[in-house]
Design a protein around this nucleic acid. Structure first.
Lengths: 190, 190
DNA sequence: TGATAAAAAATGAACGTTCATTCCTGGAGG
DNA sequence: CCTCCAGGAATGAACGTTCATTTTTTATCA
């Protein structure tokens, strides 16, 4: 009606639909319906579907980093900070399965490849995880491996277990999560 | 031509196209053209596109297990056998980037989820990797974690680095591959 | 063997859907 | 009356699949 935030409603509708049914299950007509607007209206706010999807991703990315930073043990040793991030990551993902599914879809698509390429070649990419790993490399507490490899060792398995939990292939509890995050630490620690 | 294997030509065309351009880049019309047959002909050999894609996957899966079994150190300790499998896995994937890209696409799609579900619930699933992990669990040389978690810790990062290598985000050589596989072993070993 | 009929396989235009995007309409606010 | 902009039908491209028809192979019999 008035106009609280049609833009936001459209982004949320996109998130939900993609998460629930994948990119194939989120045609613009459905997005429009769920957002309570007409199909054509979306194009007044977003140039194309690609733009809309990228915006939805950045919205989630921000929320995720905000979650990680809550209670982040700023001055603690590297290991402890890593365990914090890993734990938050897993708990956040299985607590918001829809968001997780969207991120998964995004990463395993041309959108995701483009996103990673930008991150990698844009050297002044500063976020808490990259900084932690660079510090750890300098202190020689982790193995001397390229950053993308460390990322894969540390977070690849964590995302895998989140997916398996959401699909009910396994059941994660606090104890199992801790043991998994520690296993990832074993993979990267020197 | 005579008729050596239209069926095979269709499968290969599917593999190549999906690997190069993803599922979206492999419409039946293109598959037909690349295979040197007419569109309708495909349906004499495969009931539907789904069936065709699953067959292409199984074709690759067999080839992969065959590669793993070459020079497999049958009687060696668990660790050594794991290092063999990991090394072969990475070398095989980066040596056949098209096949790897197909497998990646397959796993990150509803096809892949279905496939994993079947594997998991079909308990009499016997392959060399599952057997190795079960033996390792019995001998208590690896952490006491559910099988899917061990799989994720052990192979998730290896597939990640293969992808990054193929996308030229990193450059793998024999030394780096070894160190990565060993890092994965560190993740699962007790 | 050669001619011919029957069966099988291959063809590719056409179909029905689905989708992202465009465009014309109507109506609210100034 | 004019200006905007939301609405949603219209558009056209792309897709998987079908099917009437043609081509090739196989079987039959003189």
């Amino acid at each position: 009606m008035e106009k609280p935030d049609r833009r936001c409603a459209i982004v949320r509708a996109t998130l939900d639909l993609v998460a629930e049914q994948g990119f194939h299950g989120a045609p613009m007509a459905l997005v429009a319906e769920r957002a309570g607007v007409a199909a054509g209206t979306i194009y007044r706010y977003f140039e194309s579907k690609d733009v809309l999807i990228n915006e939805a991703f950045h919205y989630l990315e921000e929320r995720f980093f905000a979650a990680v930073m809550e209670h982040y043990p700023e001055g603690a040793p590297v290991r402890e900070r890593f365990l914090h991030i890993g734990g938050v990551l897993v708990r956040y993902c299985i607590g918001a399965p829809l968001e997780f599914r969207f991120l998964e879809q995004f990463h395993n698509s041309p959108y995701g490849v483009e996103h990673r390429r930008e991150k990698l070649f844009n050297k002044n990419n500063r976020n808490v995880i990259t900084e932690l790993f660079n510090e750890a490399l300098g202190l020689r507490v982790v193995k001397d491996l390229p950053l993308p490899v460390l990322f894969g060792l540390a977070f690849g398995p964590l995302l895998d277990i989140c997916r398996d939990h959401i699909l009910h292939f396994i059941e994660l509890d606090d104890d199992l999560i801790s043991r998994c995050v520690e296993a990832c630490w074993d993979a990267i620690r020197r």
